[in-house]
Amino acid sequence: MNRVVHPIEQESFRRLRARLDTSHFPPLTRAVVERVVHSAADLEYASDLVMDEGELTKAHAALHAGAPVVADVEMVAAGITRRETVCRLGDARSGPGLTRSAHAVRLAYEEVGPGALWVIGCAPTALEELLTLDASPALVIGLPVGFVGAAESKAALRESGLPAVSNVSEKGGSAVAAAALNALLYHPVPSENPEENL
């Protein structure tokens, strides 16, 4: 079923494209960049985001094949439309050397196992914890925000070699992380009939 796009959203994207040339990006990268920029009204994300089109292609296929989606906080989960998510923050407890967000990642991994798409937009400690697990993710959208640990956790994600969407700066947050996942959700799935893809 095709998503109905509201006229305000159509006009917003028209204005975005008038101010930012995204035509040089490959299709899924372009979709993620545009939706993140749109969600934050921040054109700088176009040069701040880091991702690989091949990894996005595999993640897009996994997502549309039903791979679980895990969110670090309810605000990320609330921003992801048209898809159920797993968020275990409400069940998590902090302890010595362990934040609630990190514990929530452990609980979520116990629930979903390998192959999920992880969407982290709030807590750098959630991203740090994910990197300690053998999660074999389809994709990690690692866009936590903050002055303490955010840029460092995203750098560690890029160094891990896991398939990822991240950014270099301290910017991020729930809205942009959810937007990156929504970009993959909204992007059409290629038809198995080659004539329909023309």
Rank of each mutant, 00 (worst) to 15 (best):
E55L: 07
K58A: 15
A59E: 08
A61M: 06
L63N: 12
A67P: 12
A71L: 02
E74C: 03
M75N: 02
M75I: 04
A78F: 06
A78W: 08
A78M: 13
G79S: 00
T81N: 03
R82A: 12
R83C: 12
R83F: 05
T85W: 02
T85C: 14
V86Q: 08
R88F: 00
L89M: 13
A92H: 01
A92L: 03
R93W: 00
R93D: 04
G95N: 02
G97Q: 02
T99E: 05
R100N: 07
R100Q: 08
A102E: 07
H103E: 14
A104H: 07
A104R: 05
A104D: 07
L107V: 08
A108N: 04
E110G: 09
E110D: 15
V112R: 00
V112W: 01
G113R: 01
A116N: 02
A116H: 02
L117N: 04
L117H: 03
L117Q: 11
W118N: 10
W118F: 14
V119F: 13
I120S: 05
I120C: 08
G121E: 11
P124C: 10
T125V: 10
A126Q: 09
L127M: 11
L130V: 05
T132Q: 13
T132M: 00
L133D: 04
D134P: 06
D134A: 14
D134L: 03
A135F: 13
A135P: 09
A135M: 08
A135W: 11
L139I: 11
L139D: 14
L139G: 13
V140S: 09
I141W: 02
I141A: 04
